[in-house]
Amino acid sequence: MFLLPNANQSQMSTHPDQRYLDGLLRNDTRLVQEIYERFAGKIKHHILQHQGTEDDAADIFQEAIIDVYNQAKYKQLQLTCPFEPFFLLICKRKWLNEIKKRGRQPVTKRLDDVYEVGEDVFAAAEQVLKEEAQAGMFLAQFERLGEKCREILRLSLTGEAQEKIAVALGVTYGYLRKKKSECMATLLSYIQAQKI
C-alpha cells in the first residue's frame, strides 16, 4: 500500500525501497543507472513480446519514471511496497493503455504474468496511473484555451501577484480578475466535459 498526505501514515511504514523515489527526486545518477540496469531488460522483453518495439519500451520506461517522480514530488507518494513489482506494473499498464490507444487488440494475457503482485502493489500502481492520467487531462484541456487565457492562468497559477500580471499584460486589475474568472470557468467546463 502507498500513502498520500491525508492517509494515516502512522499505520503504515515506509518500505526501504522508498530510496528509489528519494533518488529520483535528487536526480541521483547512480540510482537511475541501477533502475535501468535492473528493470530495463524486463520491460524491453515484455513490450517486445506484446506488439511493441524497443523504442516503445524506452518511451514507456522513461514516462513511468517521470510519473513516479511526479507523484513523489507533487503528491508526496511514500512507498510501502517493494519498488520492483510496483514499477514494472506501472510500465505494463502504460503499455496496455498505449496498445488500446493505437487501436490494437491487447493480448489477453495477465499483466502480472511475471510477478505475482499483491493488492497493495496493484493499488499503488493504479493510483499513480490514475493521478498522472488526470494531470495529463488537465494539462491537455489547459492547452485548448486561447493564448491570452493560457497566459493569464499560467501566470496566476504559478504564483505571480495579480497586480504584476495586470501590468505585464497591459490590462487593468479589474479586467484581469474578470478575465481570469472567465478563463477558469472555461477550463473547468472543458474538464467537466471529459468526465461525462
Binding site: 529520483l24 545518477t29 524506452a58 520506461f61 519514471i65
Partner: peptide, 25 residues
C-alpha cells in the same frame, strides 16, 4: 500550479534518463 511551474529538477532527471536510454535501449 505544480505542473505549469518550471521544474529544473525534472529537467535534470530527464537529461539523466535520456543518457541511460541510449545505453540500455
Amino acid at each position: 500550479s505544480a505542473r505549469l511551474s518550471p521544474d529544473h529538477q525534472q529537467d535534470a532527471l530527464k537529461e539523466t534518463l535520456q543518457h541511460h536510454r541510449a545505453i540500455h535501449f
